[in-house]
Structure formats: C-alpha cells, structure tokens
C-alpha cells in the first residue's frame, strides 16, 4: 500500500458551488494509484463539501436557494455577528453539509456516478481561497 497527500487551493466566487472533481482526478492521476480510497477534507468552517448533480446548473442554484431559506441571514437570530451578516449562517450551512468526503478509487478514477461531481460549497458572500487536504491510499 502506498499513500499520497497534497493541499489543493480552490478559489470560490462567493456563495454557491464550485466543481473540484477535475482537481481531485488530477491528483489521483499524478499519484499513479489505481485502486484505493481518496479522502478530501476542507480546512474551513464556513465552506463545505458536497456531491451533487453535474448536468443541470439549475440544481446547484436551487440547492443554494434552499440553504438560504433554511438558514436565514437575520442578525436578530444570532450572537456571533461580528464577522458580518453572512458569517453565522455560513457556519450553520457548513454544519449541515460535509467537511470531508471519502470516495473509492477504481481503475485510477473516482468511483462517482455519471451525473455526480464533487463541489466546494462556499457559504460566505465574498470570494475566498479555500484549502482542501487530499489523502489517497492504495496501490
């Protein structure tokens, strides 16, 4: 068994989903590992990871709109308001989604379904540089 690890920097344009599947696939390809387990871990508490449909961009827009309705930007609801009206809702949205994802690697590729992609879900209003720690073990 071998291991590989790296940090992938992802630039997000503000609230919404950014497809990082290609970045994960390139890391797997460069490692030369054909069969194994990939774990992606985001080092933040106001952005998260999710696996979602990659075909219709309306799905991503609807998902983002659903989370805006579920977790309202209303300063009267929160104590932690010092970092802006979008900050505490961002932490809650992050708590309701995933900080890490583990995906099997088969034949040197992520074992995702045809319509699945891995997204960084940015919950802050402004663009951010996000850090993903990638770990791959296998052979």
């Amino acid at each position: 068994m071998r291991q590989a690890h790296t940090v992938l920097a992802v630039r997000t344009p503000g609230q919404g989903l950014t497809d990082v599947t290609a970045g994960l696939a390139a890391f797997i390809r460069d490692s030369g590992i054909r069969t194994g387990l990939l774990t992606a871990f985001i080092q933040h508490t106001s952005a998260s990871l999710t696996v979602q449909e990659n075909a219709d961009p309306d799905v991503l827009a609807d998902l983002d709109a659903f989370f805006r309705r579920l977790v309202r930007e209303d300063a009267t609801l929160y104590r932690h308001t010092a970092e802006g009206p979008d900050d505490m809702p961002a932490h809650i949205r992050s708590a309701l989604t995933q900080t890490q994802i583990s995906i099997p690697v088969l034949d040197g590729r992520l074992a995702l379904g045809t319509w699945q992609a891995v997204y960084v879900f940015e919950h802050r209003a402004r663009p951010h540089q996000r850090r993903l720690v990638l770990h791959l073990s296998g052979e």
């Binding site: 080092q43 508490t45 900080t99």
Partner: peptide, 15 residues
C-alpha cells in the same frame, strides 16, 4: 475522516 500529515490531524487553524 481526517487526513494526518506530519504526525498531526490536518484540520484548519480555526477548526
């Protein structure tokens, strides 16, 4: 699931 690098958990500074 948390990657371990340099003998420590690879979590962010504020996590």
């Amino acid at each position: 699931s948390i990657p371990v690098r340099d003998g420590r958990m690879g979590i962010g500074a504020r996590q």
